[in-house]
Design a protein around this nucleic acid. Structure first.
Ligand code: SF4
Ligand code: SF4
Lengths: 139, 139
DNA sequence: TATAATACAGACTGTAATTATCTATAATTA
DNA sequence: TAATTATAGATAATTACAGTCTGTATTATA
């Protein structure tokens, strides 16, 4: 079990948007170049972020993407859920819908992680240039 | 991102061992029958649990598997880590080894989940017959 | 209105992980 | 020795992930 690369990309993209704030519309190509990732693939990720209402998109000339939520309010959880979906990490198929304490423990464990991810906002990590300084990505 | 089915199986198996305590050696076939799962596949999971020192195995007649840790001390985390391994849920390949606060947040989030899973012992869910009562598995 | 710039959707492909089976081998007991 | 058990390795089936290609829809502007 591991977070998908798409989630990694999405976190970087959103961190980038938060840093830019509303300065201007960013279109696909520049972002793809900056992140060294195929435009069409990136597009899919961005569309997921749009559907989750984290960013908005506009077609046509001068179109592109821009932040939708207030830059102070985008949490790690928002981004992760937009990509990974909202299903529980542990589910039981042999299940009978009724309440099971094995599942309950696993759900509760996940909730501890989620609570923390909801508290943590992206702005906290972009603010003080706290991403790895030698990293080429620089978010 | 989801926990593997193997982890689900392992939790059920270990819960079963905890319930049985040290009553006797369980061999592959009975467990496989009870769980409706292919013996060879189950064997692989059991071997992982052996390698993690949660149970022990003995070949030959009257051989089989039995609990190794004290029944009160087997945590959810023990079992999960035995199957899923100990790698972090979020890792960055474009990484440069140096410290990155994006990764740090994700690691910290995971730790919140892990802490809870370490606290929770399997015995807590098998004790009071708290698994889903209508479930055929009954752990 | 035509054209260029943009986002979006769907089909498709390749790769890797997961789940599972089959077969053969090793260890132990009686 | 024979029966019983676990373990290891090869392989196959299935599914999820990562990525590409092609075409379509929307908007601005010349
Ligand atoms: S005991 Fe719970 S987790 Fe296990 S099979 Fe039944 S419902 Fe699923
Ligand atoms: S090391 Fe760089 S690429 Fe990796 S998560 Fe941190 S900022 Fe992103």
């Amino acid at each position: 079990m591991k977070y998908t690369k798409a989630t990694n990309y999405a976190l970087h993209i959103m961190a980038f948007f938060v840093k830019q704030d509303g300065r201007d519309n960013l279109s696909l190509q520049p972002i793809a170049n900056h992140m060294n990732i195929s435009p069409t693939y990136l597009s899919k990720i961005l569309t997921q972020l749009v559907k989750a209402d984290l960013i908005q998109s506009a077609p046509g000339m001068n179109g592109g993407y821009s932040l939708r939520k207030h830059k102070n309010e985008v949490s790690f959880f928002d981004v992760i859920q937009a990509i990974e979906g909202s299903g529980a990490l542990f589910t039981c198929e042999m299940n009978d819908q009724s309440d099971c304490s094995l599942e309950r423990v696993m759900r509760e464990a996940e909730n501890h992680m989620i609570t923390y991810l909801k508290e943590k906002k992206l702005i906290e990590v972009v603010a003080k240039n706290s991403m790895s300084s030698t990293c080429k990505e620089k978010v």
